[in-house]
């Protein structure tokens, strides 16, 4: 099955150069997304999900961060080769991002309206004031903000977290991006609001044929919105598969652990086991597989060598257990 890739990331490496040493937040990550599809990225806190998205946006704070290698092909063009001005034209217009922290991601000294209008006026200069306002209001309605006319003139601190996140989504969608990067858009919200927002994002995928990357550590969210899933661990991709395959037959021991971790109401409580241990910090990264210290099936070899990402049909997995099966 060959699809046109809207976004193709190849061997991306984003490192942070800190006083204590080099943090390899994203280490040789490759993936692709197609129009009308959603790629879910899962993994524990600190495994480099947000940094992956920020790298695509070219919003890595430098110093200390730097994209040291790889390419990010958007419609076949390498974003890493674009200059600042070209990148600026793309941000917010073709590629938009919804951030993890709704409480602090809006500028406290400007009204909601001003902040939505800003991105419309940057990328749609042809619209006059009235039209831009119309559109901004329409966006607020679309994200189900009650009394949009009133909210339009309010400041972020007057809104609840859920509403702020919806405003963030309205801003991101205001210029109809064809690639939407969502960084845990629902983590801070309660369940009903969460469902509404996921629905909103799903709509966008269907109606506007947008491609979506959804970062989360909530597998429930993944099962609802994602088509493909990429599992990350300590800056590396450990498994890549479609959402059905992941849930039906997880391959990497880490993925298995994660799936056992989902607190699901219709299953027995006993299944709610957690993965022992913690993600190693960058300065005590093991020589071999980063997951080996926590893996129940780790061998001496896992501790000494880092396995390659192997293709198994459509899927990919980074584990010695599946060596030799790639020809199947």
């Amino acid at each position: 099955m060959i699809r046109d890739n809207l976004l193709e990331v190849n061997h991306l490496k984003t490192y942070f150069y800190t006083d204590e040493g080099v943090v390899k937040s994203v280490d040789d990550v490759s993936f692709s997304v197609q129009p009308s599809r959603t790629l879910g990225i899962v993994g524990e806190s600190g495994c480099g999900k947000s940094i992956t998205l920020l790298s695509i946006m070219r919003l890595i704070e430098n110093p200390p961060g730097k994209i040291v290698a790889g390419e990010i092909l958007y419609n076949g063009e390498n974003l890493l080769k674009k200059n600042k001005e070209e990148m600026r034209q793309i941000r917010g217009n073709n590629i938009a991002m919804i951030f993890q922290e709704p409480m602090t991601s809006l500028n406290p000294v400007y009204t909601i309206g001003e902040q939505i209008l800003e991105s419309i006026s940057i990328h749609r200069p042809e619209l006059d004031k009235g039209e831009a306002r119309e559109r901004a209001l329409a966006m607020l309605k679309m994200v189900n903000i009650p009394m949009p006319e009133k909210r339009f003139n309010e400041y972020p601190h007057q809104l609840s977290g859920g509403m702020r996140q919806r405003v963030m989504i309205a801003i991101a969608l205001s210029c109809e991006p064809d690639l939407l990067l969502c960084d845990e858009p629902t983590t801070a919200l309660d369940v009903t609001v969460q469902a509404q927002i996921l629905e909103l994002i799903n709509d966008l995928k269907k109606k506007a044929r947008a491609a979506i990357i959804m970062v989360t550590h909530d597998l429930g969210v993944i099962s609802e919105v994602a088509d493909d899933v990429m599992v990350m661990y300590a800056g590396k991709v450990v498994e890549f598969a479609t959402v059905d395959q992941i849930f039906a037959q997880p391959m990497h021991p880490y993925t298995c652990g994660l799936i056992n971790c989902i607190p699901s109401l219709d299953k027995e409580v006993e299944r709610l086991s957690t993965i022992p241990g913690m993600v190693p910090s960058f300065n005590e990264m093991p020589k071999g597989c980063a997951f080996a210290p926590r893996c129940s099936r780790a061998t001496q070899r896992c501790k000494e060598n880092m396995p390659e990402l192997i293709d198994i049909g459509e899927r990919k997995v980074r584990c010695f257990l599946y060596e030799g099966k790639d020809t199947e």
Partner: peptide
């Protein structure tokens, strides 16, 4: 975080400083 949001919207770097940060 809101400065990053402004950049993500495609605001010009000079405006990020003058409009979003200075105030």
């Amino acid at each position: 975080d809101y400065i990053r949001t402004a950049r993500a919207k495609g605001v010009k770097e000079s405006m990020v400083f003058i409009k979003h940060a200075l105030k």
